[in-house]
Write a protein that binds this DNA or RNA. Structure first.
Lengths: 345, 345
DNA sequence: TTTATTTGGGCAAACGTTGGCACAAGTCGT
DNA sequence: ACGACTTGTGCCAACGTTTGCCCAAATAAA
């Protein structure tokens, strides 16, 4: 259902001008007399002329819309990212189309396909945990579709990437745990396919190594669906707890994981942080209300969304494909709270 | 940048048919021989023909997209609603365009305008706290644009509404507080302009009245921006606490308010629930981790989004404007936790 | 056999914009 | 006074689909 709005043709007829003159007067391009321009503008204003964006898209081959592919909207981190995306898009008159992969490769592919049929001008992507084969993206990218990756990125495609300093965040937090006296630090993380998993593990391992602590593979647990399935977190925790020499601290690699693990510890009645310390990546904004308050590594999610979108719009609007691709890395913030403070320290 | 994809014309030329025949064969309408249909379909499949949705929109006067107007994406409740919206839209091949009003009337108007220029087929709306004048919606609605309201609804427009049982939820929770022995129950709520504020207050007042308790106006605090501005919550709390006879329990009317108030109570070092009990509407999914665990009223946000979208699509796809408009009311769930359990009870 | 009806398919206009090209009138230099 | 520009505007095709209308052939009815 279209809302009856006046068109260029209407203006042309009313003013006894040709379509093209009106069109040109309206977007003050080309050589149009000041007089004509004024008359047209005035008429357009009075009659509330609005260009039909669909028609423009058809003609111009671009739709002023961008597609977003991410795993799950209610995830705090992504919700904040979206908010950042939306704000930049809004200011630039772009429209944002959001799709959720729910950590499924299948769905991610379908969404991307759908988005391209819709002729989005560019894509903002955070990979699903299942995605190993990235050909659905590289094909499009080769055809010239601008893509910017954020959070869960890849180096298989030559394009911009926007991430938090995952390695640094994990490193800093692990160091903090070590400094607090913990020696048996486990790492509960997501699928090894995605970039954040690798980077966070590297930070974790680096801190251990620098402290002269051995890396214990049995202390590293992968949740292949990033914690979407509650049972995978439970399983990982059980395995850890049943170890002959169980860990005394937990570094969790994502929002869902952090919440899930914390919740399990509490349910099992373990004393935090004495029996088990816990810290993790999380953008939840009241972790101080937990009991004990929760040590978190916070990512500048809004900033990430904002920057990724700015980069994408730049890509879209630049005439020629850029030769250089940046990887923006935003620092994380460690908030030390009671869940990692030993009673005595 | 359009991805070179084959068009109907290409197929027509290759198969030596006319555009119209191909078009009709593809959407098996009209009378086309089985033979032709098969040939066209096959060719289309092999060459991965995808209809150009922009062109279709221009021709058909609809875009298979819906606009969403709500206040703030990172708000848990709305994030879940969006997730529900997205799932229905996805299954019906509709595209979802999300805008945030940030509780600003100004922005809400601009967003709606923008959305209609984009020729969305329908609107899903949750009003901002500032919106009193609804003419930007009613104008469009009169012109035939399908609109479904959810959460913060209005009866100024004759259309579908989807909400939680706000009155019931508030009533049940207030009763619970009364039953737990609290007698001085304050209500911290949002702007009186929006429907949820009124409904929740009604539930609160009804419970008080049934219990023979007086309604104390000084116990009802309105945060005009729904708690978006941290200082408004602080001010409301201060005023309550400084009352000669301060309340002993708090019923908070929204996610942000509940979190904000809880946080302030903790910061001020008040004993929950002995000095002050607190309960509120919240969709945060780990309130049991708070200290003390937080009593919440949960709304079926995902369901609300899902249902609103189903209703909207029905409206969009039905030929004639319906004569009846439904108001779907979903029950809320009260989760009683320690923040409202007196030590002795 | 003629006429009416069905079946299958083509033509071309339309949706609202845009932009290359053409062209008339005015301006300038010589 | 005559060509060479410049300026302002109009014409028309194109973007990819859809669809009303028309028409040819085949079939059925008379």
């Amino acid at each position: 259902m279209r809302l009856d709005s006046i068109t260029i043709k209407d203006i042309a007829k009313a003013l006894n001008l040709s379509y093209s003159t009106v069109s040109r007067a309206l977007k003050d391009s080309y050589k149009i007399s000041e007089e004509t321009r004024r008359i047209v503008q005035e008429y357009a204003d009075i009659h509330q002329y609005r260009p039909n964006l669909i028609a423009q898209s058809l003609k111009n081959k671009h739709s002023r819309s961008i597609g977003v592919v991410l795993c799950n909207i209610p995830n705090v981190f992504f919700a904040e990212v979206i908010s950042g995306i939306e704000s930049v898009a809004y200011n630039n008159d772009y429209l944002v189309i959001i799709t959720q992969s729910q950590e499924s490769y299948e769905r991610e592919m379908k969404n991307v396909q759908n988005l391209t049929w819709r002729s989005v001008d560019g894509l903002l992507v955070s990979l699903s945990t299942e995605s190993e084969d990235l050909s659905h993206f590289s094909k499009l990218h080769e055809q010239g579709l601008p893509i910017v990756f954020f959070d869960r990125v890849t180096d298989q495609l030559a394009t911009h990437r926007v991430v938090a300093d995952n390695r640094g965040g994990a490193y800093e937090c692990t160091r903090h745990l070590i400094d607090s006296g913990y020696r048996k630090i486990a790492h509960i993380t997501s699928s090894p396919h995605i970039s954040i998993t690798r980077e966070r593990r590297e930070g974790y391992e680096q801190a251990l190594q620098e402290a002269g602590l051995a890396i214990n593979e049995t202390y590293i647990k992968y949740c292949m669906h990033g914690g979407m399935l509650p049972e995978e977190i439970g399983k990982a925790m059980d395995e850890l707890l049943l170890l002959p020499d169980p860990p005394d601290a937990l570094l969790c690699a994502s929002d869902r994981l952090t919440m899930g693990c914390y919740s399990i510890l509490r349910k099992k009645g373990l004393k935090i942080p004495d029996q088990m310390a816990i810290a993790g990546f999380s953008n939840f904004n009241s972790p101080e209300l937990f009991c004990p308050s929760l040590t978190t590594i916070r990512q500048p999610a809004y900033e990430i969304g904002k920057t990724a979108t700015e980069l994408l719009l730049e890509l879209i609007e630049s005439k020629r494909p850029p030769t250089e691709f940046t990887k923006k890395i935003f620092p994380t913030e460690l908030f030390i709270r009671d869940s990692t403070r030993k009673a005595g320290s």
